[in-house]
Measured scan of single mutants.
Amino acid sequence: VFVDDHLLEKVLELNAKGEKRLIKTWSRRSTIVPEMVGHTIAVYNGKQHVPVYITENMVGHKLGEFAP
């Protein structure tokens, strides 16, 4: 499973602090992992960042699938 390192670091850091804030990313190719559930990730679609709230059903899919 591929997840960009910088994105995973941000998610794990927020989980350690117990925070839930918006994470901006250009990494549409990253796979959604269970650690991301409950976070809102702003995924770049080529024009703007689209906020995507991550749920359990999204695990295993790519971030780009949810930012048309």
Rank of each mutant, 00 (worst) to 15 (best):
E65I: 08
N57G: 10
M36W: 01
L14V: 03
I54G: 00
D5I: 15
G38T: 08
V50L: 13
L63M: 07
L14P: 01
D4V: 01
S30P: 01
F2M: 08
P51M: 07
N15H: 03
H39L: 04
F2V: 08
G60I: 02
M36N: 00
L7H: 01
H49K: 03
T40M: 10
V1H: 15
E13K: 08
K20S: 05
V3I: 11
V50N: 13
E13W: 06
K10W: 08
V11D: 01
P68D: 08
L22F: 06
G38P: 00
E13I: 06
F66A: 04
P68L: 10
H61W: 07
D4M: 00
Q48W: 11
L22K: 07
K62S: 11
I32G: 00
K17L: 13
W26Q: 11
L63R: 00
E35R: 04
M58Q: 07
V3A: 02
R28F: 04
N57I: 07
R28L: 05
K24T: 10
V3F: 03
T55H: 14
A16M: 10
F66W: 10
F2H: 13
A16P: 01
R21A: 14
G18N: 14
V37Q: 08
M36C: 03
K24M: 10
H39M: 03
S27H: 04
G18V: 03
V11W: 01
E56V: 12
N57M: 10
V59M: 11
A42D: 06
T55Y: 12
E35G: 07
E56L: 14
N57Q: 10
V59P: 06
G18L: 04
T55P: 01
E19Y: 05
T55M: 13
L22D: 05
Y53N: 13
V52W: 03
K62A: 08
E13H: 07
G60W: 15
T40E: 08
L8K: 04
R29Y: 12
L22I: 15
L8P: 01
G60N: 15
A67N: 04
E35P: 14
K20A: 05
W26N: 15
G38D: 14
T55D: 14
N15L: 04
L8Q: 03
L7D: 01
V3Y: 04
T25P: 01
E56P: 12
N57W: 10
G46Y: 12
Y53K: 14
I32V: 12
K62R: 13
E65P: 04
R29Q: 13
G60H: 10
A16N: 10
N57V: 12
Y44H: 10
S27I: 07
G38I: 00
T25S: 04
